[in-house]
Nucleic acid binder design. Structure first.
Length: 805
DNA sequence: GGGCGTACACTTTTT
DNA sequence: GTGTACGCCC
């Protein structure tokens, strides 16, 4: 007993030390300690939200843990009060006032549910908690931290039978979903010309986000909606048959499970005694319902968010969830965190000025004591290539002169498409860089094919995935055979795989039964050959003939092979991680991970490279130096949204998010002209920049603010800008020799090749130059590659390298 | 059944 | 500009 008490006191002291160390301000402390009842924390950008979440969880564990509970009485001890006084700087009176909400019931780590927006954020919380408790013999790894999707998947898999699913259910991404919708539409005889599958996908997503099932969907008066309804119905039927769920289902089916099964709901309400939801402004209706159901028991729910950072309305998120939290929970306590610990004043003032132009928001103003800091740098460049070169110039200057690391820099943009031109510049510069999100690793065709094989091993009823790979690599199983199999499966009420395994029983399949049999035997032998995901992957890669197929493709196949090898290493890493954490290695687990993990989750801030990503991906991250590229009307804000006030508000919030990612220095670039999607356009400076006061920009900036209503960029003087950029290094790329990066950065220009010379292309491989045509600044080459194909390539794009010998 | 060519769509943001 | 879809021909 005495021993326990000693440990308790020691642990408590250490906790307060930690909090003291974390230098929490008063509002943050209140947010940490107010654990009982509903709590809304309005946390501005960079206001130490994660710190609050971590310390709150730590507090819950320390004070609610049964391990110490023998010595926890109804009230906090005198000692606790004095420790609080010291750490939080509250008066005794204040403490007594709020004391009741500080005391929590028994709480084991697994009683805590923390829902975050990304896996990265969840992992960060887990890691920081584990660090806090590293000295205590307390298993804190059982804290439930994850994204909505990962947490719901865990629930669905546990109670799969209640939903009529098999436990190995697969998760369909946007691409799978679209394919399946197309299949449904074809089956129903609905022409995609009049009703694109894409918009059907969207409509169904919107419905699911609102928890509208196919039976409740729309009144049958509108013919368009009626058609969507029938597609939705068939789509649902197929999903179930294929043992698959789409992203929206993950939430909707969980809500359905909880609302239809009292015992399951009670189980989770009892389990999750304390719930914390991060980025609450980005939750949609289904998620709102889910959280409310789970919190329905104890109502110990804390939500954290910032209405100014709501940027997912397009995905069904409603700010009303956060703005109306006090309506859902009338006794909710509200705490505002307004001190920003991230950015300097100039950056913060710019963000504040910008966001004040939104009328539909809760008034709040972030402040910082970090001092004015450097001014914002605004630069106009000639085109997107100059933009890349300008950014590279600034980065390499920062590294060489200011002693910064490459990882101090981030380049943010509105659309993924922007990464193309930027990548060209970075690739030439030799600066280490990483692009997140443009083409997700798991979206690559070869990876999706291999994943389909893998899925089929655990979920053989998945006809969609089966159809994807039945003839990839080619096995002479053509469309008509596949159709016949599909027909038979339909008639017999079974899966296509089942039909294939009994192919010899059906006369229609007589012609192809040998090939089908081979396919089936191959799958079975793969299944029997290994258990570990990495081994299975390897077996699939070799035994299906996929490797041979890629090998035969030549140069292009090489890249795909290395992608698949990378995929296999990812599986090995997954296995290692499981071993460390003691969790079971399963194929289903691995498949789930690759479906729910995003590029940003894997982004490693430790690696020393510049990172390029969309602003959406950058949410929640921070960088010493941020480049905001493509600040032009039509790009950011996006053309689609220019005339829609609500959408413009969201765009502005997105700009706000972008600016507040920067800690010390913000560069903004815009280009006189820009070629995107094959079209060249001239866009004026973004309206958002015009909303930022002049004095926040450095003298180096070339901002000539035209009158707001007269946004004609052509009348603006641009000469100085031009000279500034081009004098340095961009005017004539081919003669630039300045050494900018460290590794081969001199390679800015276009190397000239002569007819007959051998060259190397990154995707086509080796070839020989047939002709070279000068096109004023660029050169058009005609190259015959070893593969036999002849291509016309622009020198600037092709990045050709000379081949010696 | 497969391969090749051409037409055409598609480009906001993502778990 | 690029990737996919479909149709035509072998």
């Amino acid at each position: 007993m005495q021993q326990l008490e000693k440990r308790y006191i020691k642990a408590k002291q250490r906790l307060f030390d930690k909090i003291y160390e974390a230098k929490l301000n008063r509002q943050q402390c209140e947010a940490v300690f107010t654990v009982k009842g509903p709590l809304l924390v309005l946390a501005g950008a960079g206001s130490g939200k994660t710190t609050v979440l971590v310390n709150r969880i730590a507090y819950l564990i320390k004070y609610g843990n049964a391990y110490y509970s023998d010595v926890i009485s109804e009230e906090l001890s005198e000692e606790t009060v004095s420790a609080l006084e010291e750490a939080v700087n509250l008066s005794e009176e204040e403490i007594n006032q709020i004391l009741p909400s500080f005391i929590c019931d028994t709480c084991m780590p697994y009683n805590i549910l923390a829902i975050t927006f990304t896996n990265k954020a969840a992992n960060e919380i887990k890691e920081r908690i584990e660090k806090t408790f590293s000295d205590d013999n307390l298993s804190v790894s059982s804290v439930n931290a994850g994204t909505f999707h990962s947490i719901c998947m865990r629930i669905l898999r546990k109670f799969y039978d209640r939903l009529g699913y098999a436990p190995s259910m697969s998760i369909y991404d946007t691409d799978d979903k679209k394919r399946l919708i197309s299949v449904c539409m074809k089956e129903l005889g609905i022409d995609e010309k009049n009703l694109p599958a894409r918009s059907v996908c969207n409509e169904i997503s919107i419905a699911k986000d609102k928890l509208i099932g196919c039976d409740e969907y729309s009144k049958p008066t509108d013919p368009r909606e009626e058609r969507i309804r029938s597609i939705y119905k068939l789509y649902e039927k197929k999903l179930r048959e294929y043992n698959a769920v789409d992203f929206d289902d993950i939430i909707m089916k969980t809500v359905k499970l909880l609302s239809e099964n009292e015992d399951v709901l009670k189980y989770y309400q009892n389990k999750f005694k304390y719930i914390l939801v991060d980025e609450y402004q980005d939750t949609n209706y289904a998620q709102f319902e889910l959280v409310n159901m789970l919190a329905g028991g104890t109502k110990n729910i804390m939500v954290v968010g910032d209405d100014d950072q709501s940027i997912y309305a397009f995905r069904g998120a409603t700010v009303e969830n956060i703005l109306g939290f006090d309506k859902t929970y009338p006794d909710a306590k509200v705490i505002k965190l307004e001190q920003n610990y991230r950015s300097t004043e100039n950056i913060l003032n710019a963000a504040n000025a910008l966001i004040h132009n939104n009328t539909d928001r809760h008034e709040k103003t972030l402040w910082s004591d970090k001092g004015e800091g450097e001014k914002i740098n605004l630069k106009e460049v000639d085109d997107q290539f100059c933009e890349g070169k300008y950014i590279i110039e600034k980065i390499s200057h920062g590294v060489r002169v200011d002693g910064r690391k490459y990882s101090d820099f981030a380049v943010l943009y509105r659309v993924n498409e922007m990464s193309r031109s930027l990548e060209t510049a970075f690739a030439k510069s030799g600066i280490p860089y990483k692009i997140l999100g443009s083409m997700r690793f798991y979206d690559r065709k070869e990876i999706k094919d291999i994943v389909s094989y893998l899925t089929l091993l655990v979920s053989p009823t998945d006809n969609l995935r089966l159809k994807r790979i039945i003839n990839e690599p080619k096995r002479k199983i053509g469309a008509s055979t596949v159709e016949a199999i599909e027909q038979l499966a339909e008639e017999n009420g079974t899966s296509m795989y089942e039909i294939i395994s009994r192919a010899d029983k059906y006369t229609i399949l007589a012609k192809s039964k040998d090939k089908l049999c081979d396919f089936c035997n191959m799958m079975e032998s793969i299944k029997a050959s290994a258990t570990l995901p990495s081994e299975l992957l390897n077996a699939i890669f070799i035994k299906t003939g996929y490797y041979d197929m890629l090998k035969a493709e030549g140069f292009e196949g090489e890249g795909k092979i290395s992608n698949i090898k990378e995929f296999i290493s990812a599986a090995i890493e997954y296995e290692k991680r499981c071993e460390i954490s003691g969790s079971e290695i399963t194929l289903v687990g691995f498949l789930e991970e690759i479906s729910l993990v995003s590029d940003v989750d894997k982004y490693d801030g430790e690696a020393d490279s510049v990172v390029l990503m969309t602003i959406h991906s950058a949410k929640g991250l921070e960088f010493p130096v941020v480049f905001l590229a493509g600040m032009e009307d039509g790009i950011f804000p996006s053309v689609q949204n220019l005339f829609d006030p609500a959408a413009m508000s969201e765009e502005r919030r997105l700009a706000y998010v972008a600016i507040t990612r920067a800690k010390e220095k913000l560069y903004i670039t815009h280009s006189k002209q820009r070629t995107m999607y094959g079209k060249t356009e001239r866009n004026p400076l973004s309206v958002f920049i015009k909303e930022i006061p002049d004095n926040l920009f450095s003298h180096e900036s070339e901002r000539k603010i035209p009158p707001r209503q007269k946004s004609d960029y052509q009348t603006r003087p641009v000469r100085q800008v031009r000279e500034k950029v081009s004098d340095e290094f961009t005017r004539s790329p081919e003669i630039s020799t300045a050494n900018r990066g460290r590794r081969g950065a001199a390679d800015y220009g276009i190397t000239k090749f002569s007819v007959g010379q051998r060259v190397l292309h990154s995707s086509f491989g080796e070839g020989v130059v047939l002709s070279a045509k000068d096109l004023g600044g660029d050169v058009l080459y005609e190259v015959k590659f070893n593969t036999g194909v002849t291509k016309k390539l622009m020198a600037t794009f092709a990045k050709l390298k000379p081949v010696r010998g």
